[in-house]
Amino acid sequence: MSEDEQQSAMWRPSADLAVLRLRAELLAKIRHFFQDRQVLEVDTPALSHAGNPDIYIESFCTQYEGPEGLQQLYLQTSPEFAMKRLLASGSGSIYQICKAFRNEESSRLHNPEFTMIEWYRPEFDHHQLMLEVEDLIKYLGLFAADQTIQTISYQDLFQRFASLDPHSATLAECQACVIEHDIHLSDTGTDETSTYNKDMLLAVILTHVIEPELKQFPFVFVYDYPASQASLAKIRQGQPPVAERFELYGKGIELANGFNELTDNIEQHRRFTQDLKTRKNRLQKKIDIDHNLIDALSEGLPACAGVALGFDRLLMLASGKTILKEAVTFSFDRA
């Protein structure tokens, strides 16, 4: 196809109609799955006065022209904060199918606008929620009903595929592991002068060394992350302390991230403040933090586990595609 022809075909969907039919079918099944389990479907605002201060996530910002002047608004990066406010107000188990927006690069596996399935289960911990994610995957016919999806702790994962204990390893040992795997970083500092801290090096090893190995698993859960990568998960004290977090991978592609949710409003506020400070140091955009969420947590978030699943990626795997845009009706470049 010539460049001109390619350009003029841009009005067409980036996904085949067969994939779009499967998309509708899977969404209908997902709604059935939750209805059977009495999980309430909810619909929260995509546009909010508060943003997500996570230093690795950038929001789309816009402005509302109201009678009091311009108001800063954010497109949600996930429905998490609004859903936690519902949980704190006594909603019980809830789920949502919504669009989330992240101002990041679009790539083979990323679209700045994507469909997320997010749900929360009071009384569940992250292991129980992993079982429910597994049930959903089987319900959608993506994994044999009589088999079990493998689970592996973050620690075992690193020991098995990179011969490194991620909890006890020193910065120097992480640097040696990166070099041993023939990975060339933009910063070759091999001591404390490197701009790569330990969590970044673990992320390098995870994405460059381990994720390719995970391609051999149709699905696999990874759980119990380093406490320094807790995000909004509860930290379980112990030797070492770990964040009660899990990820679901399908053929080496990250599909879902779940937490045993942090319910401590003081700790939540501390982590937000820490993120804002880091954003300032890194010259990132200033974000208005969600005081409604902090207030909801101080009122009392029930002990619960929550998970966000990237639906477009799941559809991509279900339809045998390898590029995300082939699972999205109109990918970002055609939007």
């Binding site: 690795y56 990041e104 690069e105 790539s107 083979r108 969590d199 995870l206 994405t207």
Partner: peptide, 14 residues
Amino acid sequence: NDIVKPGKGQAFNR
């Protein structure tokens, strides 16, 4: 140019 990103954390351009 390939972008790799773990779930929560630093993204990389490989």
